[in-house]
Simulated scan of single mutants.
Amino acid sequence: MNTENIFGCLYNSLFTYRLSALIKRVPLISSQNQLGHSFQQILQILLSPKFFPIGIQIRAGDGTMIQTKNSLNEKEILEKFDNFFICSQQIINRNKKLLYELNQIPIIFLLSDDIQIRQAALKRWKFSLECFQSLENKCQTNNSDLNILANSNPVFHIRYTTNHILAFQLGIFDSFLFSLCEQHLITTSSGFGRLAAFVSLKQQNIYSLFHHEQPSCQNQSVPLAIAGYYWSGI
């Protein structure tokens, strides 16, 4: 063990579900909204070698979990958090040659406590399951579009639900899915994204962004060891 993997190894040993245990739970958690992807579909796609997954975690605040209406329309919602999506596109553009050589398709796994952010992104850039089912990676994707992979059900938060066990299981499952991504973009003020990105043990820099920040990923990444020092007390 070293500074790059010690905390991640300990976390994975103590807290992360074994894949067999996750598989047992996934079929029981169905998507109630056809707009998004089911948890089972997300797990299968993230585990597929056909894709290069980039994880985006947007923390909008606890208030978004209990409010029923948003004063912003879908266009305004995406503009508010456009730095996350622009950054992910920049990462894809920088890795085009590598992705071509590996014959991998970039996808964006989007996590957010705000259901309306996920719904707005899915309506504009939803990843097609036809692409996933294609046997020869012959996906008709547009280089200017993002392939968004996300569940469109409301988030269960332990503070705002009576089913605390289910909320905990879903939170751990989301964390596990996020850790499967090769690259991570997280909200600076959120601990959920930090932990999942750090314990993933991916040897890629982590991008930490604020809302309304300059939409660029240039020189804003943090090495894994430094992320552990600042965010995990190591």
Rank of each mutant, 00 (worst) to 15 (best):
M1V: 09
N2W: 01
N2A: 03
T3D: 12
E4W: 06
I6F: 13
F7P: 00
G8E: 00
Y11T: 09
N12E: 08
S13F: 08
T16S: 15
T16F: 02
R18Q: 13
R18T: 12
L19Y: 09
V26E: 06
P27Q: 02
Q32D: 11
G36Y: 05
Q41H: 08
L43W: 04
Q44G: 06
Q44R: 12
L46P: 05
L46W: 02
L47V: 04
P49I: 03
F51C: 11
F52Y: 15
G55C: 14
G55R: 03
I58T: 03
R59D: 12
G61Q: 04
G61E: 07
G61A: 08
G61K: 04
D62F: 08
G63D: 12
T64V: 12
M65C: 15
I66L: 12
I66M: 11
I66W: 08
I66S: 14
T68K: 15
L72N: 13
E74N: 13
E76G: 01
I77L: 10
E79S: 12
K80T: 15
D82M: 07
F85R: 00
F85W: 01
N93I: 02
R94L: 11
K96L: 11
K96N: 02
K97G: 01
L98G: 02
E101Q: 15
Q104A: 05
I105Q: 11
I107Y: 02
I107V: 15
I108L: 08
I108Y: 03
F109L: 15
L110G: 10
D113I: 03
D114C: 10
R118S: 09
A120C: 04
A120Q: 00
L122D: 02
R124Y: 07
W125S: 00
F127T: 06
S128P: 10
L129F: 11
L129T: 11
C131A: 06
C131M: 04
N142K: 03
S144P: 04
N147Y: 00
I148Q: 07
L149A: 06
A150K: 06
A150N: 10
A150H: 08
N151C: 13
N151Y: 05
N151S: 14
N153L: 07
V155Q: 13
I158M: 05
Y160R: 04
T161Y: 06
T162W: 04
T162M: 07
I165W: 04
L166S: 11
Q169F: 09
G171L: 01
G171P: 01
I172G: 00
I172W: 00
F173K: 03
D174M: 06
S175I: 01
F176S: 11
F176Q: 12
L177P: 04
L177G: 01
S179G: 04
H184S: 08
H184M: 06
T187Y: 03
S190W: 00
F192T: 01
G193A: 02
G193T: 05
A196W: 01
S200G: 02
L201Y: 01
Q203H: 11
Q203V: 03
Q203L: 11
Q203E: 14
Q204E: 14
I206R: 09
H211R: 12
H212C: 09
E213T: 05
Q218Y: 10
N219Q: 13
N219S: 13
Q220F: 07
S221Q: 14
V222L: 15
Y229S: 12
